[in-house]
Structure formats: C-alpha cells, structure tokens
Amino acid sequence: MGTVFGTGSGMVEKRGKALWLTHVCMIIAIAFICFPIYLAFVASSVQQSELVKPPMPLLPGSHLFENYKEALFTGINAPVWKMLMNSMIMGMGIAIGKIIISLLSAFAIVYFRFPFRGVFFWLIFLTLMLPVEVRIVPTYEVVANFGMLNSYSGLILPLVASATATFLFRQFYMTVPDELAEAARIDGARPMRFFFDILLPMSRTNIAALFVILFIYGWNQYLWPLLITTDPEMNTIVMGIKQMIPSGDDLRNWPVIMATALLAMLPPVLVVVVMQNLFIKGLVDTEK
C-alpha cells in the first residue's frame, strides 16, 4: 500500500502532509473504536479493589489469568464455559439449520413445478417482513406448550427458518443455466443426486458467506434466550453478560464480567477471520 501511495501511481497523488493527515485520521478513528475494548481488557486484568478506586487504571494489571479462570470455571450465575457452549450450540444450530432448510426450500421452488409454487414463494418472502420480536409472544406460547423452555431445541427451532437465506439461494439457483440440470438428467441423475452432486458444490462459497452471517446472528440473539431460558445453566453468553451486571446496590466482580465480555467476542471474531476469504468470495464471485 505504502509504495503505491509513495510513488504516486494512484489516480490522486498523495504525498507529504496529505499522506500524514489521512493516516492520523485513520489512527484516531481506530483508537476511538478500540478504546472501550482496550478498557474492558484492562479491567479484566486487575482486581476489583483496584477497579473501583479512582482513577481507573489504564494499564493492564497482573491478575489476567486468575480473572479469566474464575470467569470460565466459576462465573457469577453460571460458569462462562457453559454459557459459551450454549451459545455455540445455538449459533451453530441456527446457522446450519437455516442453511439446510433454505437450500432445500430454494431447490424446491426453483426446480420443481407444483401447485401454488408462486404462492409459497411469496409466503416465504412475506415473512422477511416479520422479525423475531413481532412474533415473539405466539412463538413463546407454542414453545412453552411443547415443553421446550430451557432446552436447546427451544433456543434453535423457532429461529431456524430463514426467508433471507431461501431468497438468496433462489437467486443463486436461478443463475445456474438450465442446461446443467438437463445435462444431469441425461446423465441419469435423479433430482436429489443433482442437488448433492452439482448444486451443493456450486453453492459452497454462498454457503460459507451465509454461515458467517447466520452464525453471528445466532450468537448475538438476546431477547429470545432471555425469554425462554430461566435456568442459568441454559443461559447463552450474550444474555448471560446482562444477567451478571449488578442491579441496585449489589457489589459484583467487574473484572470477571469484563473477562466474560471479551470471551463472548472471541468466537464471532474467529469465525470471521477464519472464513473471511470464503466470505468475500461468496459475496463477490459468481463461479460459473
């Protein structure tokens, strides 16, 4: 990057002061975004007594590992590893479930002619307008009647159908030339074989991109787990943090809460970093 700007081969030449100015602006912006996270990190590395006495420490302390150990294995309401696992199961369940269901429903809508095909598509499409919060009361009623409160299926199933993903896969399938399906038919592939052998491998970059988005969507669910999990053992991490925050005059262990917050951030970050190549490919590429 530096060499490109330095030699001035770009459309706009940037030298000297202009170059410095852009960098200073960027650094300030990044610092602005990162500072709260840094503070959380500092807070998670000191003792409660150091934290509550002003001024607030700005340099990391020496209790990092103790605090994280306490958060992970003891926690406040429930051990954080348990909440992380709950979140992981919920996030994975939602992401994988949504992808499987929308791959199949898009396949049905695009490749099969059945009565009211258009009606079904528009019904699915209409649900795009209904976020979780709108249908939360009836959904709660249904889940409660099925006895799925405080269970993984209760956390995952109501969120597992996705109009967005169905729509995305439908659009992708429609760009696949008809001749490909016909060639497969002549080659002797039955519909499901065509789906697994040809359509699925061709959608893999879309699947990866969608997985990242949906996993983070599942991981960040707050309202729904708050409603249906009353047992701390079933809490997910995002709502768990909220439950940790002291109310009224309670004294709570802030370093442990901060450690929990940082731990909660890690998995989505890891997913994005690991899958970012595929993610960008899936959004940009049309591999045909």
């Binding site: 001749e179 490909l180 016909e182 040809i198 061709m202």
Partner: peptide, 14 residues
C-alpha cells in the same frame, strides 16, 4: 440411450 451436446456445453463447473 441417448447423449446430448448442448450449445453452451453445460459442463459441471466444479
């Protein structure tokens, strides 16, 4: 017992 060659070849890209 037929085979067909398509205009745009219709090869499986992957």
């Amino acid at each position: 017992n037929i085979a067909m060659v398509f205009q745009n070849y219709a090869l499986y890209p992957h």
